[in-house]
Nucleic acid binder design. Structure first.
Lengths: 153, 153
DNA sequence: TGACTCATGTCAGAAGTCTGACATACGGTT
DNA sequence: AACCGTATGTCAGACTTCTGACATGAGTCA
């Protein structure tokens, strides 16, 4: 019991959560004046870079369930930010597109979010940023391996 | 429009969210069989390492609002995992303590979470882990600076 | 062709978290 | 002492996200 708990001050997991929480809070702060949430923005940004993504693909990209993304997409469609075909051309997949209004709304949000990212990286050199990316990728990779397979049986 | 959006594949912010999401999912997977959520566990772990924390302090430590933590604490108190004095000795602060039952429940959870953290760090050397900690701390520091002060006016 | 598996879109209900608001208590200032 | 800004605990309502469930369609295999 010398090391009974996970030392929160040193734990990479805790620091990861702290950093992610700080980033989310900062994004919320700059997106709120634009009437946009983080998931809302993530969805639009994904559609901007990869037009035609389906509901499920957007959900995976924004790290929410497809049910949650569905709720959001219906609201975005209702408000005219995105469009989806009424019927699927193949299977059940409904490719989503950004409307001009959605694109316009995204512009300001992207600028705001970029300012946050710039601030976040302000104290790091290019090399450190590259190292950070590699490290985060490594973490994702490690966690994906045998993900829950021991528990899910 | 050559760099109109934030390239999600390269963005440190996106990778940070992805890593944090993967960590959370992995933690949820191992905590679910124990009937425990991540916030639930965080609260207990915080109390184990720093007995007597108040509701607001626990909220900050678990990265939720004090209202959310209050809801959780009431449930934990009702179920006998923690105790709080009925009246504050000084101010309104109610120092929270882990009960034996809470401590016992935490033991299994800590082991489960530690296995996740071990898996997360499996591909990294000690030096890389230290570098990761430093980098995450740097990010938190940068984001805290002038946090929302431009927007909150 | 038929059965099976997998992925998708969607609905409904439950759970967690958030914002807004209020009363209370401390600390420093006047 | 009186005031003011800050922090805390708490209640209430709303929002977001989740889990559970169902039907549909593609792909595989016998």
């Amino acid at each position: 019991m010398s090391q009974d708990g996970i030392d929160l001050e040193t734990s990479v997991g805790y620091l990861l959560k702290e950093a992610s929480s700080a980033l989310r809070a900062a994004m919320e702060a700059v997106l709120r004046p634009l009437g946009m949430t983080v998931t809302h923005y993530s969805c639009l940004e994904l559609l901007s870079q990869r037009p035609g993504l389906s509901n499920s693909e957007l959900a995976r990209g924004a790290f929410v369930t497809r049910q949650s993304m569905n709720v959001l997409l219906q609201a975005l469609e209702r408000d005219g930010y995105v469009t989806r075909p009424v019927e699927a051309r193949v299977g059940k997949v409904l490719p989503t597109q950004l409307t001009p209004r959605g694109r316009h709304s995204l512009e300001k949000a992207t600028a705001a979010v970029r300012s946050v990212e710039v601030r976040m990286l302000s104290g790091m050199t290019r090399e450190e940023q590259a190292a950070a990316s590699g490290m985060l990728r490594s973490i994702v990779q490690s966690l994906r391996t045998t993900e829950g397979s021991e528990q899910q049986g």
